[in-house]
């Protein structure tokens, strides 16, 4: 089934309007093949029907979520981009331990957590740092896909998720489980998961303020306008002095000057200034 340029753009605009995710014209064939499968599952005969379904059917909103789910690459793994994680564990955590000792509460947000590997990685790093025993620690993973959230909640992963995970970490924090390895309860107890669109600033208020936001390889799908909205929301959610960690190919260049750049030994991270801009 062919996806015409016109229908491609109409479907793309709907997804962009809801989630900020942007597909350039060269993604037309990707959309054709992946949404073609959805069409078959829904019993629809053409992309015209599919377009009308997501636009007018009462279940259209849910289908847009499904479309986003199949169109965006959710593939991730534990300890991905480990140089950044080393900086986080070796420099940011000790700094926060000193700075936040008064309130003994640490809140970290894995925005666009996909199937949960990043949130659990963060929890393992916090736990292994040994700095936060007795603190109120919470790692919140969010995504727009309910399917990946269900996987994150199950906490069970196959071998491919451990491609860069040190053996000692696996032994210490995972247990054999039917279907793979399961994250141990002491780590899972630190994590919560929720359904959140990064363009929904109002709903994000429910998180309260956080100390670190991991938003890695999420905004690569966004157009500029959506990136600006998302970054503004992330800024609002950070406590003064809180860190924003983006993917290695992402930066805030030409997007925001509200953050300050912090040089760690292995990476550059963004930080909301101690004296906030507002």
């Amino acid at each position: 089934m062919r996806l015409s340029v016109e229908r491609f753009r109409l479907i793309r605009d709907i997804i962009n309007g809801r989630y900020g995710i942007w597909f350039s014209d060269e993604h037309r064939y990707l959309m054709e093949s992946r949404l073609g499968e959805r069409m078959v599952q829904l019993g629809l005969e053409s992309f015209d029907d599919y377009y009308y379904f997501i636009k007018y059917n009462p279940d259209g909103e849910t289908e847009i979520e499904e479309a986003v789910d199949v169109l965006t690459t959710n593939e991730t793994y534990f300890f991905r981009e480990d140089y950044q994680l080393r900086a986080f564990a070796g420099e940011l955590l000790p700094e926060m331990h000193r700075r936040l000792a008064g309130r003994r509460k640490l809140m970290i947000w894995s925005a666009g957590c996909s199937s949960g590997e990043e949130a659990y990685t963060i929890a393992i790093l916090v736990k292994n740092s040994g700095l936060f025993e007795g603190w109120d620690v919470r790692i919140f993973g969010s995504d727009v896909s309910k399917r990946v959230l269900a996987r994150a909640r199950s906490g069970v992963y196959r071998t491919t998720s451990f491609r860069t995970t040190p053996e000692g970490i696996i032994k210490r924090h995972f247990s054999e489980h039917s279907g793979g390895m399961r994250v141990n309860d002491d780590i899972r107890a630190l994590c919560n998961f929720g359904h959140l669109n990064l363009l929904d600033a109002d709903k994000s208020v429910l998180l309260g303020r956080v100390d670190v936001i991991f938003c890695r390889n999420v905004m690569i799908y966004f157009d500029k306008r959506s990136k600006l909205r998302a970054i503004s929301m992330l800024y609002d959610r950070l406590n003064n002095g809180g860190y924003l960690l983006l993917g290695h190919t992402e930066s805030l260049l030409n997007l925001s000057t509200a953050f300050e750049l912090v040089h760690t030994s292995e990476d550059l991270v963004y930080r909301r200034p101690e004296v906030s801009h507002g």
């Binding site: 919470r138 959230l149 929720g194 998180l207 309260g208």
Partner: peptide, 11 residues
């Protein structure tokens, strides 16, 4: 309270 608040984002 924090945990209950986060559950308000549950799918």
């Amino acid at each position: 309270l924090d945990k209950i608040s986060l559950a308000l984002t549950d799918e």
